[in-house]
Nucleic acid binder design. Structure first.
Lengths: 327, 327
DNA sequence: CTGAAAGCGCTTACAG
DNA sequence: CTGAAAGCGCTTACAG
């Protein structure tokens, strides 16, 4: 039922190679151009993408690997990628790996098999298997959210984020400080963010902070926070993510601890939800949407063989809201 | 660099048609099978999907059209679809339309061009253009979240959800009831959900409810709620979605109206966030993940030409939490 | 500017 | 069970 290039050629009274040339912007006579154009419009002809790809051995598709779909950061980044890709006539293919490392690796190979032109990898952790996969496939790969010297990467300035939050906490007079972080396997969040924070604490001179490790899951954050509040009486708890901060707020509410009067709380991320709740959460905003746009832009340039800086760092922004009190 | 079926055939000392037959589960002698298998494994051969699709004129891809990526409902549904598709060897392609109706239509045609086997359409509104597109392409389409007699559809039981919430509100003794709904263009939410609620109110006999229309955006919900609270003093505000309820809570907090002591609030959806906040929100849980799984299952059956009920309705579940007081 | 021919990597009847 | 041949719908040198 769909017309092929041969049909169009025949109806326009030319050879199919001429139609192909027209389609691909080659030079054809004015007369031919008009005839072909008319027929194409009339039958609403669109080239078969498979046949094109089979010849070209490549596509205009960028594959994006995400660890999970139900996170603010992922959604926003994907939207940014999609927008930018679309306006450059690229398509986005999404592979969700549900935080399964092996599926992440598989997804990279799968994308290669489908001849995507480039891959954007939103990974929480970069292993040797990731590096090997990236090397094996011979397709540009861009890492987002983490960095690695062997890969092009785009990161948020976690060090700055941590540092600014640290300075603010110190400035507000807090001295009983607790920081709830995550595993160092996630270098960006587990190491850089925390180290930035620590830097501010160190500069303070007289300040100290107690570190606890928890996970990205709110249920675990709640459990950890409960333990913390049993063992000590911090004036502020800094959650390494907004979700962790939400967990802290939750346990505080149930223990009738007033925020921020009795306990200040902060997060990182700048999720929409942080300004919907009460009190609104002081946090560091990460520009996920922009990250997505820049990522798309970079991968396209890599695909075209253009030069792209090996590592791009996006600024973050401290957002002061209601969940922190001065002591 | 990638091996083709000819390479494999040659190395195995057979014809490529034999390799193809082997690949597609046709009968080959034990001896041949082993030889081919060995070579394939050795070179890690994977068939070129374009060539396959070009011949087959179809793919194992299901296209999913979503109005937005940054919504709990969408994320959960997508995860469900992805899971189920994956375990049936299908792939998911996502097209995000950013709530742009035209892009929704375009996406349907685009998918058809890419020869997806089926399309899952998460639309808030079904127009004639949608119906025409579905008809034009000659590919199975499954509507999720809305229903239409011309299309296979999968919906949540909005009527039941509304009704149960209505009964609960009445049982709790509320008589100053406000319902904040959305446009009737969204039939599921704008009409069915509200009508279910109204049914419970009508059955009550002595009850009444004032309806206001707002939008899915929290900022608008906040504005609408503010107006409502200026004009009247309801004992409960029922938001047609959790986001609307969140908007109500937000304005209540800022006006120092205690929830639920001075004002009860409820929503619909069962978003994760509703149990992270304080007070936790009484709502009706929609089983989005399951909806995604069922949707994937149905579209696969439609693709295979199997019989699928025209309309499937998923139960909802009233979740009682802290945001409602008895009066 | 235009067209005939070869070829991309598969699959599918059709013979044998 | 196996293989030669045709064909899916394009693009790309190569002649003219």
């Amino acid at each position: 039922m769909n017309k092929t290039i041969s049909d169009i050629a025949q109806m326009a009274g030319v050879a199919k190679s001429t139609v192909s040339r027209f389609l691909n912007g080659g030079s054809v006579s004015e007369d031919t151009r008009q005839r072909i154009e008319r027929i194409i419009k009339q039958y609403n002809y669109v080239p078969n993408t498979f046949a094109q790809s089979l010849k070209a051995k490549k596509t205009s598709i960028i594959g994006t690997v995400v660890p999970r779909l139900d996170s603010f950061a992922t959604s926003q980044t994907l939207i940014g990628i999609d927008e930018e890709l679309r306006s450059n006539q690229y398509q986005m293919l999404i592979a969700n790996t549900s935080q399964d490392m092996q599926r992440e690796i598989d997804a990279i190979y799968d994308f290669a098999r489908q001849k995507v032109s480039g891959i954007i990898l939103l990974a929480a952790e970069v292993t040797d298997a990731h590096l090997k996969a990236a090397e094996d496939i011979g397709i540009p790969v861009l890492l987002v959210g983490q960095q690695h010297e062997q890969l092009h990467s785009l990161v948020h300035n976690d060090d700055q984020a941590g540092y600014e939050m640290g300075r603010y906490v110190v400035e507000q007079g807090h001295r009983e400080i607790v920081y709830m972080g995550v595993s160092e396997k996630d270098q960006a969040v587990g190491i850089h963010r925390r180290e930035g924070f620590q830097r501010a604490i160190t500069e303070c001179g007289e300040c100290e902070v107690k570190y606890y490790e928890t996970s990205f899951k709110m249920s675990e954050a709640i459990a950890t926070a409960e333990t913390i509040l049993k063992e000590s009486t911090p004036t502020i708890i800094v959650g390494a993510t907004d979700n962790i901060a939400l967990g802290v707020m939750k346990i505080a509410f149930s223990k009738k601890i007033q925020i921020p009067q009795e306990l200040s709380v902060t997060g990182f991320g700048g999720y929409d939800i942080t300004e919907m709740i009460h009190p609104t959460l002081t946090t560091v905003k990460y520009h996920y949407l922009q990250a997505g746009q820049v990522a798309a832009n970079h991968i396209i340039r890599l695909v075209k063989g253009e030069l792209v800086e090996k590592r791009t760092v996006l600024d973050t922004e401290l957002i002061l809201r209601e969940s922190v009190d001065k002591v």
